[in-house]
Each structure stands twice: as C-alpha cells, then as structure tokens.
C-alpha cells in the first residue's frame, strides 16, 4: 500500500514534533493570546452556553488570517525537510 505524506509523518513521530513546534511558535508570536481574547469577546456577547461548534464557526476564519506568514513558511519548510529526510531513509534501507 502506498503511504501518504501524512502517514509518513505520523509514523516517524515527526507530526507530533512539528505540531509541538507550531504550538510554541503560535504562543511566542502572541497568536494564542489574540485568539483567546477573540473567544472571550464572543462568549461575552453570546452568553456562556455557546456551543463549541458555534464558537468555532465564528473564530476560525479570523484566527486563521492572524497566523503570521513567517510561521507558515517555517512549518512548510520543516515539513518538506522531514519528508525529504524520510525519503532518503527509505532509499538507504
């Protein structure tokens, strides 16, 4: 069976590592705090009983657009690297 890039990254544990890196980068650049504030606002406006889905629908596009380009670029580069490295390993074995 052909493995997808996603599967390759999960198998090697790279995906967990990359996810962790992304998490920290988003904290560092203040994205997490920003999104937290947006969520708080929405909850204040709509009342405490707002569901996760409703919150998600209102936050997602705003949150996405706030991810800095450098963070996206870095992640893209690192994902590429990891996939290339995994490919190299396969060739060797």
């Amino acid at each position: 069976m052909k493995t997808s890039p996603h599967q390759t990254l999960v198998k090697a544990g790279d995906r967990d590592g990359l996810k962790e890196l992304l998490r920290r980068r988003l904290v560092e650049c203040g994205w997490r705090d920003e999104v937290k504030l947006i969520c708080k606002e929405i909850i204040k406006e709509n009342g405490q009983d707002i569901t996760y889905d409703a919150l998600l629908a209102m936050v997602t596009s705003r949150a996405r657009s706030r991810v800095p380009d450098v963070v996206k670029k870095e992640l893209l580069q690192k994902i590429k690297n990891q996939l290339l490295a995994q490919e190299e390993k396969l060739k060797l074995t």
């Binding site: 599967q7 999960v10 198998k11 090697a12 544990g13």
Partner: peptide
C-alpha cells in the same frame, strides 16, 4: 501515540470509516 507501535497503528488506521479522510 506513546510508542512507535502506536504511531504505526495511528498512521494506518486513523481514517474516517465512512469517507477515508484523515
């Protein structure tokens, strides 16, 4: 996944049983 074995399992079987999306 807390082990290599788990990661392999996750890679192979974590797909939607209906539409095969990961």
């Amino acid at each position: 996944s807390t082990s290599n074995e788990a990661r392999v399992r996750k890679a192979v079987s974590c797909l939607c049983h209906t539409c095969k999306s990961y």
